[in-house]
Amino acid sequence: MQSQFKDKKVIATLVLPGIIIMLIAIAAPIIISLGLSFVKWTGFGKMKPIGFDNYLRIAKDPIFWKSISNVFILIFVTVFFQNTIAFILAMYLSNIGKKLSNIFRTIYFIPATLSLVVVTKLWVNIFNPSYGLLNKILAQIGLESLQHAWLGNTSTALGSVIWIIIWQGFGWALLFYYSGIVTVPDELREAAKVDGANKFTLYTRIIIPYIMPVIQAIIIIDVTSSLKQMEMIYLSTAGGPGDTTQFLALYLYQRAFKYSEYGYGNAISVIFVILAFTLTILIRKTFAKRLESL
């Protein structure tokens, strides 16, 4: 059996179906997208080759740049705020005993188990300016001045949709960090304590470096999910008011399927793929250097 797995023909036979599926499912659509990004096309009928016009248009499209900046704001918030809070909470949950920890982890994970449509509709109703729970609570506690059309106002719309995204995604981050922290061997903690490490040193010198692969995985997930953020925005604000909550994935969808500008939509998707690849490679390289130095 062992020798069969060393046979190159056997390896090729086993790997080939996977590679073919990958080529059909991933490489082919990217290549088709690249081809379509050089044409003007409504999705049906005749295509008109226009060279790099779609890319030149992207460079001057303020909504495209707004959607990119919103993606980076979301990445920043999820990576630095959501992860910090999730890590601190995971730290406490790993120290409060199994029973209590189970209860709290279940509670925090409930939003992640709910359907995205349900979560979005729930928050759209909570944020509703006329009958929404949030404005009602503010009125009850005498803070009428803070009442808002949370999703309809340009100053609060982006913050509100980011809140919904974080509310649903928080459970996953917590679960990852908790799982990472509890896998740190007791011997390592004991050894650190014997060497005189206090709690702060224990976490910064032992636990965080130990769970660095977990942090890397979470950050890659955060970045990619921020890039492909679409459904929640589509269901809540559709990118509005104006382009306040426009995100890259939704924008390319709207250009292709609402405006019937398939060529332009595909050009945006090519930039999307390049951005996703670049960010993922950057994160992996950054972490690889860090892991090597440990």
Binding site: N128, S130, L151, G152
Partner: peptide, 21 residues
């Protein structure tokens, strides 16, 4: 108009009227 005019869809508007809001 309703405060969230540009983020309020067909169903929201119709229900707000039908439910006498």
């Amino acid at each position: 108009f309703q405060e969230n005019l540009t983020t309020s869809d067909y169903g929201d508007a119709r229900n707000a009227f039908g439910q006498e809001r």
